[in-house]
Write a protein that binds this DNA or RNA. Structure first.
Lengths: 220, 220
DNA sequence: GTATAAATACCCACTTAAGGGTATTTGAAA
DNA sequence: TTTCAAATACCCTTAAGTGGGTATTTATAC
């Protein structure tokens, strides 16, 4: 069933907004206020406050930023998924970073991911689609996701162990083998072995090269 | 002279808005629409378009984002300063990164720098102050600026030679002493000497640390 | 129960880098 | 003309990392 966008008799779509920037909330509120099919039932700059309010307030769609202090959009989406599975979570963010998108879509299974570059018309369309059970993702988001998942797949074929990744992270922190050994409570010989195995697997043979690799693969 | 905030008879403050996110523009427009002392005379997601429009349109304050594709806020501010010195430029951005703030304030001499975390009331206050010739910077911005300028000052006292900077750039490219020697047509001994002097001057003793330092100092 | 992978740890030989010197040439400033 | 910084180059010693092995323990999978 599809709802037309200028409905007036049906009950409005109840929306909650979460963004650490009050100005964005104000903008969205006023922006959606000219569309009577939406009703903003809650707004907050604080994720915990919002989660509390969902206990007493019926909400259809949660429109949330992703990168926020205290508690981020991913954590919010996971908790909403667990506690309020009927609420459709939509990320609305400046950030089109692959790993975040992947986590939000694959794990938190959010209903939509929009960039703040979208215009009013697309936002309204997206929200209506999502309310009607159709997931909505901006084109840029889909591109980023595909690129990220391609890299992720390549990563997996190299197959570094968790310990090896840990060692790489230590190397990136500019620790010597001895310092890494002390930190992880293992012998310096073991660190050398891991290092050796990492170099063999990745076909990289310097610490600096390894850091580059790790950044590209989002290990650090 | 100070203007009171609920004036109605005086001519409104003419504002232009530049932000690559249409949603932010919409938000700001609607947000300021409830304050009759402001009139938004131009809005754009494109910096070049905005610069063109300033030729025909009288503007008191330009409210602009900083990080934008095509042409960034700094470039905009510099051009406005040169071509339309009467226009007061105000940065309104998510980004509180020291170097940008420093460039915007010290070089482009903008009239205000606000974080998008500010609320409506502070935004209105800031715009009125700026219109009356009082520069306005958010507290967080001032803190970031001070921190950045402290680091900048420390950097300048180190005084690396051009050759040493060249060596650092090679190290960042992950070249060995031998490779650097070949590339610069000098002896490996000389590279070692430079490296030694760099480490002594900067009080850094690893290549990875040096790269971090170089990034912070914008050498690479 | 027996492969298998992961993490642990050591041996040895070799290379590279770090840190302490000193010294020469060159070009620009005093 | 002298002085000085910058770039060049070498000496020596010690520390750190690289790369080739082998081997043990442990937990997981078949």
């Amino acid at each position: 069933m599809k709802l037309c966008s200028n409905m007036t008799s049906t009950s409005p779509i109840k929306i909650a907004i979460l963004d650490d920037h009050q100005i964005v909330i104000d903008g969205l509120k006023l922006l959606l206020s000219s569309h009577k099919q939406f009703k903003i039932v809650h707004e907050s700059t604080n994720g915990f406050e919002l989660l509390d309010s969902l206990e007493h307030e019926a909400v259809d769609i949660l429109l949330t930023d992703v990168m926020m202090p205290m508690i981020d959009g991913y954590e919010i989406a996971m908790r909403v998924k667990a506690q309020f599975p009927h609420i459709k979570v939509v990320a609305l963010t400046m950030n089109g970073e692959g790993m975040l998108i992947d986590k939000m879509i694959e794990q938190a299974e959010i209903a939509g991911y929009l960039l703040k570059t979208i215009d009013k018309k697309e936002l309204v369309n997206a929200l209506e689609s999502i309310y009607n059970g159709i997931r909505y993702f901006s084109d840029e988001i889909m591109n980023e996701l595909e690129l990220y998942q391609k890299i992720k797949k390549e990563n997996e074929s190299i197959n570094l162990t968790t310990r090896e990744i840990e060692i790489i992270q230590c190397i990136a922190l500019n620790l010597s083998n001895k310092q890494i050994a002390d930190k992880l409570f293992i012998s310096e010989r073991t660190v050398e072995t891991h290092r050796k195995n990492i170099f063999r697997k990745t076909d990289i043979h310097t610490a600096i090269g390894l850091i580059e690799f790790a950044k590209k693969r989002q290990i650090i």
